[in-house]
């Protein structure tokens, strides 16, 4: 049987995150949680690959507090076969380096696999580091910003990766990790039977000891980076608008640019 592993993150459902200026942390109270939107594309792609291949197991996993189980149940309702919750007090305060270490240990514990999928980044931290980090720890290639799977077999894939100008076409052999972007697909809506089954599914909790994660590599101790300060940047101000006919507006614009010493 072939196997796909999808890593997801539960994030607050809001476009405008608020930061508590005293503690430098996100204000989470009263904000509902969702699966990180980019991870939804990773789940959808895994399910599509499974449908194409047949005889494939999709395992969805997340690291988080016990309530992250909700996100896993949602992933199950979409059609993932199994879910794993990585949860341990020792995991708290892990940065992207420690988090990707923990997730790589979980992969080792799961065993064999064909592809690891995840979203390009989480909408709360926005680092885009954890996906490639897992690949580094596992010493496998990672393909980020995947916009299209041209071909995907159990040991070979041809993939379009988004770049600043256009895209790359990459061929890859063997295991790899990929991170999904919005262009990749359109996530499905859960089915009723999927939802009801997901409610009853048993989700194992794996802790640091179970996956063999060493204390020095996880949590605060294992995190080389520190958040010094978090703040809400001021909202973008509207630009200058010039009005009138074409010639008139062009003149005004030139005058403005000169005044600002831009030309």
């Amino acid at each position: 049987m072939k196997r796909l592993i999808v890593f997801i993150k539960q994030v607050p459902d809001t476009a405008e995150l608020r930061i508590d200026p005293k503690t430098n942390t996100m204000i989470r109270t009263g904000v509902p949680s969702i699966i990180n939107p980019f991870d939804m594309y990773a789940i959808e792609e895994a399910l599509r690959i499974k449908e194409k291949w047949g005889d494939t197991e999709v395992i969805v996993a997340t690291m988080g507090p016990p309530q992250a189980e909700e996100a896993l149940r949602e992933a199950l309702s979409l059609g993932c076969d199994k879910a794993i919750l990585l949860t341990d007090r020792k995991f708290a305060a892990s940065d992207t380096f420690a988090t990707s270490y923990i997730l790589s240990k979980a992969v080792e514990k799961i065993g064999d696999y064909n592809i690891i999928l995840t979203g390009k980044q989480a909408t709360d931290g926005d680092t885009a580091q954890v996906g490639p980090g897992i690949a580094s720890w596992l010493n496998i290639p990672s393909i980020t910003y995947v916009k299209k799977m041209i071909e995907v077999k159990s040991d070979y894939a041809k993939i379009e990766r988004l770049m600043d100008y256009g895209y790359d076409i990459i061929e890859i052999k063997g295991k790899f990790l990929m991170t999904a972007i919005k262009d990749l697909n359109e996530p499905r809506i859960p089915s009723f039977r999927g939802k009801m089954a997901a409610k009853k599914a048993e989700i194992p909790n794996w802790d640091a000891a179970y996956i063999g994660a060493e204390d020095k590599n996880i949590g605060f101790l294992g995190s080389p980076t520190r958040v010094v300060k978090a703040f809400s940047p001021p909202p973008k101000q509207g630009g200058i608008k010039t009005e009138g006919d074409d010639i008139e507006t062009a003149k005004k614009l030139i005058a403005n640019l000169k005044e600002s010493h831009l030309i």
Partner: peptide, 20 residues
């Protein structure tokens, strides 16, 4: 297609015939 995939058409069909 989405109504179908989400099981909504199964709602009014008896269980013996793959409904809910």
């Amino acid at each position: 297609k989405i109504f179908g995939q989400s099981d909504l058409y199964r709602v009014f069909i008896p269980e013996e015939y793959e409904g809910l």
